[in-house]
Simulated scan of single mutants.
Amino acid sequence: MRILVCGGTGFIGRHIVDSLKQAGHEPVQRSRRTAPPLDFSKALTAEAWLPHLAGIDAVINAVGVLRDSAGRPLQAMHADAPIALFDACAAAGVRRVVQISALGIAHSATRYASTKRAADEHLLALTEQGRLNGCVLRPSVVFGAGGASSQLFLALARLPALLLPRAVLQARVQPVAVRDLADAVARVAGSDAPSGLVEIGGPEALPLADLIASLRAQMGHRPACVGALPGWLSRASARAGDGLPWSPWCSETLALLESDNVTDPAALERWLGRPGVAPGQLLATLRRD
């Protein structure tokens, strides 16, 4: 199958491209640097997408940004462009569409979550109408080489003493190795089985602080001294992160951590045909990535 991968040069997208190749598919990447070029933030109508769908059998949207910027506004990147893409797929007869979303956005009031939900709901509505065979994948925290949050976790794991926001100490996540997610996406995209909304989590749920502690143990270090950051200081640090476009720590992240990010691991196992990588084995995946 020729599969269009939007966001194919990003953290998750490039692993999806590799998995598609290994599965025998032909991934087609589009960006501002490809020929023909495609600026995702400006492809806001179905007509803008139609030329890029010629000869395409399926579409994967792996585009995601954490915060607004002039070049990559959340509304355009998460909602307007994907909605236009899904409408174009329906018009062009490209039925299989996979949307990479995020676990934990269902009830979040953040702009990240609300814009993601808008595209998710549009794809699911088109699927309900029989115009597409869409799948919305919502993974928990994704871990792997090149991921901004993964790099932050690794940096924190190297420190012998930590003051962590209470949300980080308490909120549970279900980390997914990026290669596991990519392999699952490749199988979903290559299947015509109805799938709808699918939540993806690794084999074990644990507080984010415990994930950091596990990574430290996998590095061979003794346990760190960990304390709780006062609430006001947690909020202040998140606001400081708002001014650092490259940092995954910001007010949006803090708000998203106010609820657990967990689900049944059976969906990932079903698509992989095996259990996912456990948290205690995540560090070893970096050498394979």
Rank of each mutant, 00 (worst) to 15 (best):
L256G: 06
L283W: 04
M219G: 15
L103I: 04
G220C: 11
R270C: 07
A240S: 07
D264H: 12
G231L: 14
A88K: 00
V94D: 05
D68A: 12
A62I: 09
P203A: 04
S195Y: 03
D210P: 00
S195M: 09
F86M: 14
S195I: 00
G201E: 00
W49F: 14
G55L: 04
A177V: 14
S31Q: 05
P36N: 01
V262G: 00
R14N: 13
D18F: 08
G55K: 07
T110V: 11
R30Y: 08
G93N: 15
D68S: 13
A267E: 13
P51K: 04
A113N: 03
L272F: 08
G276L: 09
E199C: 02
A161P: 01
P194S: 11
T115F: 10
K21H: 10
R239T: 05
W232A: 13
S237Y: 09
S259E: 15
L162P: 05
D80C: 02
P194C: 05
I100R: 03
A224S: 11
W249K: 02
G24S: 13
R111K: 12
Q281S: 15
D210Q: 13
A186W: 00
H15W: 06
L124M: 15
L197A: 05
I60G: 02
A240H: 08
L229I: 01
D120C: 02
D289L: 07
R187P: 10
R72Y: 10
D242W: 08
P248F: 14
A76V: 01
S69E: 12
T45K: 10
L137P: 02
G64A: 06
V5R: 05
A266F: 08
A54Y: 01
I105P: 00
I105H: 01
L286R: 10
E26A: 12
H221I: 03
A213Q: 10
T263H: 03
R72L: 15
V262T: 12
L154K: 05
D289M: 12
R117Q: 04
H78F: 06
A58H: 04
L154T: 01
P265I: 02
V65I: 10
C89N: 05
D57R: 14
A46L: 09
D120T: 00
V59P: 00
C135V: 15
